[in-house]
Amino acid sequence: MICHCPDQIRAAADTYTTRTKENKDMQNEDRSEQRSRFSRFINNDNTVGYIFAAPFIIGFFAFTLVPMIMSFYYSLTDYKITAAPVWAGLKNYIALVQDSHFLNSMLVTVQYVIIGVPLKLVFALLIAMLLTHAKKLQGFYRAVYYIPSLIGGSVAVALVWKQLFSSEGPIVKLIQSMGVERFSFFGNAHFAFLPLVIGNAWQFGSSMLIFAAGLKQISTDYYEAAMIDGASAVKRFFSITLPILSPIILFNLVMQLISGFMTFTSAFVITKGGPNEATNYVSLFIYNNAFQYHRMGYACAISWVLLLIIALVTLIIFKTSNNWVFYESEQ
């Protein structure tokens, strides 16, 4: 727009000069205000929170969120790693449903979870209860039982486990000496999962610590009252300990289910998924497809299906938890 009116120009010029003048007057004031605004910003609780959380947030975006979004894109492509991904639509997901190897890997994973997780939780609770009763060297024993959890996920432990249960290992030799000929864990599709499940249960330490903390929270008043009424130890366990501990059981159950579904190291190191795919757990199946067969797109699709399944199982457990989890505060 071109302006022809001199009045308007004058008016505009006036406004400009006044503003500059005002600005000059306010400069000093501005600076101090800016500083205080900055210090207000930096001392704000939210800012402080975000700054302290920044390492995690940055890590989450760089190493979790971005890769997740990328993997979702790859799951819709044919991606052979060495060449650029080619759009394939839902092809990978359709192939997945028809793939008997995937269904088998899902099945053995569910088997692993159903047998492994309760075993681990029962074991953890048992030891936790033993340790709350033991007064001498309680801290020492707790630390000792926690050690397997610290080193449990490592390759080194998996290698030790492989030796223990191998055809020349002490456990197989013991079974053979009892008269079972040609017995082997890893050569037999029915038994190969057992050492892996036991290995997982052996790493009960972190669940145990959480249980132990929960047990300490239970007021002794309940037990004393029950004992006066003549309740047996078993009755006390099922009527007092279990109900009050149930929120903690829920927490441990969900955590262990998720890690159970993602089990990888022991199968990768010890059995390579065999024999006859009996220990070909989903994570290992994903790894093989991605890095052995170069079907990265397919592997990403399986990862997303696994994510959905874990989310679904968790959701079901949370929804049904109203029926069996008891919160003291709500009563």
Binding site: S166, E168, R182, S184, F185, G187, N188, P275, N276
Partner: peptide, 12 residues
Amino acid sequence: DGSIADPGVQNE
């Protein structure tokens, strides 16, 4: 018949 090792031993 055992004249070749079973899959578990082969894997070891």
